[in-house]
Amino acid sequence: MSTLKTRYTLTQSQKMMIFVLSMSLYGLSNMFTELIPSVQLGPIELSVEYFAFIPLTLCMLFHPLYAAVGAAVGEVIFGELMLGQFGGLGELEKFITFSLAMYIAGRMVSDPKNRRQVGIAAISGVAIHQFCSSVIDIAKVWVGVEELEAVQGLAESIVIIEGVGFLNDVLFSGILFALLPTMYLVPRLYGKIEPLLGMKPRERNMQYASGSKSWLSPKLLGGAVLLALIAMGAELLSESGWSIGEFELPGAESHEGLLIWISMLAAAVVAAAVIAVVLRKASRRRQEAGQLDG
């Protein structure tokens, strides 16, 4: 018995419970933080960005994957869709960065009773999330503004605005609404909240039963980073590609348009292929499950 390494396994309904819990709690808090007014000091904004302590606490106490994804879904539903300010595709990037950061923070904690570990994980979770979203915001302006280099000082000003925002979010709302409450809540809730969901508390150095089956395996993460790099490279290439096209066929407006359409078509084909593969996989899995059941 002792040679077997105990793994933290959950049943399907326990995963669902964690998901629902995290979704409703973080969603509710998100509705409030959307309404709390922010104090503007020039370009610096002191605001309660979000109650990050809720997903952080849940990620440290339960399986981080379901808690993180649940919190991100809760944010989209309660904070955006219900208040009528859903940003569409823009929310996708928030969704991915937020759940990734919370998941990493949850994985960093091996012993929920160790306050130092909890604190370090909490603040780094917020820092990862804010860093990713600042980088994405900067990239958005660089893609959206055509003659970025031509405009004096635009690039610098974006970086400064985003940098100040990053520092504010990490130092102000990160410490007040992520670090301190998480350090207060995690040791206090540990051992109390788990029985309410019908599961045992996480024990020290317990491993997660993730393995290769889970969709958030290290391989996939590496793949995602690689894909993002390829996408950025493609963006840069397409910028230079347009100028080549112009050089070869001077003044041909339609060719530029054609090139844009070709690149968009290629992107659409790649996206469609990926979606098709994913869908087919899902349907195969579903059919297997259906056969298993009846």
């Binding site: 819990l21 709690l25 302590f53 809720i54 206090r188 809730l189 309410l196 969901l197």
Partner: peptide
């Protein structure tokens, strides 16, 4: 949120 977390856990 401390009591609320416990209550919501029961409800979920």
């Amino acid at each position: 949120f401390y009591p609320l977390m416990l209550n919501t856990a029961k409800r979920s």
